[in-house]
Amino acid sequence: MLFKTITKENFKKMVEGLLEENEVIGPRSRDQDLGGNKIYRFLKINSFEELEMDYTRSYSSPKNYFLPFEEDLATYRLNDKDWEQEIRYTIHPRVIIGMRACDINALLKLDQVMLKSVYPNPYYFARRRNTLIIGLDHEPLEDCFCRSMNTDTVFHGFGLFLTDIGDRYFVAINSDTAYIILNQFDAREVTEEDQERYKTVKKQIESKFKTQVDITILPELMDLEFESEIWKKWGHKCLSCGSCAMVCPTCYCYGIEEDTNLTFTKATKRRFLYSCNLLDFAAVARGHNFRPDAHIRLKYRYYHKFRGFVEAFSQSLCVGCNRCGKACLAGISPKAVIDDLIKTEKK
């Protein structure tokens, strides 16, 4: 991998330049929670000043810029008994600034499903191909457990990845497009001093992880504790509201619905992000529901994340961002649930 550094001054110029030519998405705050903490989200930014490079964590992951919550897969022109199907993949070049290592790792996991497995997803592919990602390192928050999930560092899947080393960013470069852009802003070769500072910052980041989740035998535990009472305990609290899946950077389950206009001359086939926690996720036409209870649905979400995905791709489908834990009003977090599972096992 190539590394360079860029001054913060020049980085600002680069963002301003990118803003002139492209749509740029970045972390912005709009509201505050009760504790006075800013609530961040990834939104379109219009000026460098709107971009909050010191943000903590976005409430929702930026996955919707790759897998929109809703998208039209096909449209149809209907005419009496006949119809014509039309499919256009959205081509919308843009830049996303500020994605964390965990979020980029989340995309790499989605890549496994959407690009590298059978039946590649062209809609995802079109967005992925037309997005330049500029990642950003940060000091872990209290509840970040990406280190346990081995997603605290990232080596590909981005254009540039920035680490703040004082007055400059240490930049990992991973694509030609990004390389060309960076070089237009006096990016300089890494000096020995830069490298020392980078090492110090990285060590500091590493030393600040507070939350650990033990996933050593988690896949086996998911099977062994399939009938465990802990699922009922957490399921009892679960609101089956799907918030966890919506904010999650890797949840990709969806539903498809078709509808027509009022004159039955046009139809659309629409994909919408769903959640396996929602009541009718596994309901079939005759009314039978394969997962009728909240605790069973909750269990399956974990089962998919920590067992099913591991089986298919030798990695779990969780990046340890704890967004689901934060968004869950009922206080269901992966850390709490997994700790509980491990405790039950030890008894």
């Binding site: 499903v113 039946y119 990709y252 539903g255 079939v284 998919h304």
Partner: peptide, 13 residues
Amino acid sequence: ERRMHCGMGKCCR
């Protein structure tokens, strides 16, 4: 037999 929305291992239904 299960509910399917995609047929391609994506929707997870």
